[in-house]
Design a protein around this nucleic acid. Structure first.
Lengths: 342, 342
DNA sequence: CCGCGGGGTGGGATCGATCCCACCACGGAT
DNA sequence: ATCCGTGGTGGGATCGATCCCACCCCGCGG
């Protein structure tokens, strides 16, 4: 058997070098472009690599370069929200596209419990991924801080109070203001809100935007509107019930999510209020659900795919930065989608 | 500076060995349990590893063992369905959990275009992942065949006609039969169907189940029911429209997906048919959407999380199998969820 | 008393790409 | 003619874990 062509084995850099009649070092330089190589030799090496179908072995490269060529997308299992709407798949798709064009692998991590969270931190600290994308909306979650402390490039979805943290968020307050201004513009006199959880920045910012819009229009915000709830439909139903009991004259509702709005619509229907004639309703998110409600929901759309894209670009920037890069933050615009409900 | 304790560097196996006063080989054997080690020495090594916080370097291990300790979940970008419903996140969550307990990483791949598909095949053939989980519903998709040919352990979601392919599917035909029997049982005399795409096994099987149930109950299936459509709401609306025009006396509709049912409900409402009094409607999937429709949708639920779990277990079985393992297939049960529509 | 087997051990070789240094040849400058 | 510098080149060393072989010691049987 010939000593040169060992079949059934992936071609290695040495194989390429031998086939091209040059040394390993030269072949490596030609392929990576990291040093001087004469044009003739470069061509020969590139052709040999092509012929043999050479592809560098990731593990070997990682071992030597101390670079993983991969990024982890981290989604704590406690983020139920993320799993029940279309937010996550859309972000994922955008992240995947961006990473693929940069030639990086996407590792998905859904840590369960403290043990796995710690494991993840060590994994990150040991640089087995080049960076992290983190989806964690709850303010109390210790994970963002822990990962930040690990010193790995890190970007979160949603603004973070932690100093040194890079993040990408949508303009929740601005979107809420737009929604309320829209309701006022169509003639509503008493605009209430069904707020989301206040330990998530999205929930808090949407509530703040509602209040600001009312104040600057000269209205007095109604204060008690079930702020402690979550983003679910059930909470929307119950909150709407309480609101109707307390302010029977309400004629506009800004809901901090589409699911809340779905619940509100149901309660309004049960109460015999016509939407949008008696009460106008605006939601937030523009999930697929919104267009299937009766009537179709007017809502504030957030550019979900763009969140993923911007997060990835920001992270790649941090990774490529030579020294300890400074934190970046991006705020993406939202806009109102008018349908039948308000 | 002491030559032993180099700070700021991850501890390596050599460090552990030195710290325990033994050779590298012994330390390795003690930690992996792959050879004879005296109990005393084993204890010393384990304690040293613990003290130093030793964790083996994945890249080095991969390089040597020719094992990636990771599995890829592949979702062709053409699978729009997957991204617009809650199917994907739920599968993902289950897969992640199963893999984590087995100590494997999850790599997510969403190949765009032919170039990336080929790249993925090479990636798999070169064994840079230990196995693949594939979500690809379209019969014409060449990717399953290509990956199967790569000789890597592979499991698909949904049954596959390819010989040698392992898969996990739900009982689509059985679920459809149950739905139709339910409609007949509540008194429907003319049960039509809005079928899904026939180039997906799920679409074809649900149609087949509908036909079987009608035949075995002595009814004659209505043949032309817009079989060429997709799973979308728009198609549901249009198909329902055509069905009403052709069979004005229809009193039961089996829809091959919840989205189709959403469209059907809208058309029925517009046509002045009451649901479920005039026409009973049953969907398939039991997405979150189903309970927010008016009326809430009676539908066939599929155990989505279980699909992910079974796929992962099957794959791990294939990976651990010594030789070329034979193909496995799993069919999971479905069941009817009764709500307001039928 | 010597040889032999096996539990236990240490360290060389290996995986494949990359870093780095030594070296060679050639053109221009002194 | 001699010397230097630079574009080009080859291959040793390295990353860290694992495989494998040689070796050492002990107890036992011949």
């Amino acid at each position: 058997m010939a000593e040169d062509g060992q079949q059934g084995r992936r071609p290695t850099l040495s194989d390429v070098a031998r086939h091209a009649g040059v040394g390993r070092g030269t072949a490596g330089r030609a392929l990576s472009g990291s040093g001087p190589v004469s044009p003739r030799v470069r061509q020969a090496v590139l052709r040999s690599a092509e012929e043999l179908g050479y592809r560098p072995h990731p593990a070997a490269r990682q071992l030597r370069r101390r670079r993983a060529d991969s990024v982890a997308l981290v989604v704590p299992e406690t983020e139920d929200v993320v799993f029940t709407d279309s937010f996550f798949p859309e972000v994922l798709r955008a992240v995947s596209t961006e990473l693929a064009t940069a030639g990086l692998q996407l590792v998905l991590s859904i840590p369960h419990g403290d043990a796995q969270r710690e494991q993840l931190c060590r994994f990150a600290a040991d640089r087995h991924v080049d960076g992290l994308l983190l989806i964690s909306a709850h303010a109390r979650d210790p994970l963002p801080g822990a990962l930040l402390a690990a010193g790995v490039p890190l970007v979160t979805a949603g603004r973070s109070p932690l100093s040194g943290m890079s993040w990408v968020d949508v303009d929740n307050a601005g979107g809420a203001r737009t929604a309320v201004e829209h309701l006022l513009g169509r003639g509503c006199r008493r605009v209430v809100t069904i707020a989301g959880p206040q330990d998530m920045s999205a929930g808090a910012d949407r509530l703040a935007g509602w209040r600001e819009a009312l104040l600057s229009a000269g209205h007095e915000p109604v204060t008690a509107m079930a702020a402690a709830g979550d983003f679910t439909k059930t909470h929307g139903e119950q909150a709407m019930h309480r609101l109707l009991a307390r302010w029977p004259d309400l004629d506009g509702v800004f809901c901090a999510s589409d699911l809340l709005a779905a619940g509100a619509l149901e309660t309004l229907r049960a109460a015999g209020r016509r939407v949008p004639d008696d009460v106008a309703v605006v939601g937030f998110d523009d999930r697929p659900l919104a267009q299937h409600l009766t009537p179709p929901l007017t809502t504030v759309r957030q550019p979900v795919g763009e969140i993923g894209r911007q997060m990835t670009r920001t992270l790649l920037g941090l990774i490529d930065a030579p020294g300890p890069a400074e934190a970046t933050s991006v705020v993406l615009p939202t806009h109102l989608v008018r349908r039948g409900s308000g």
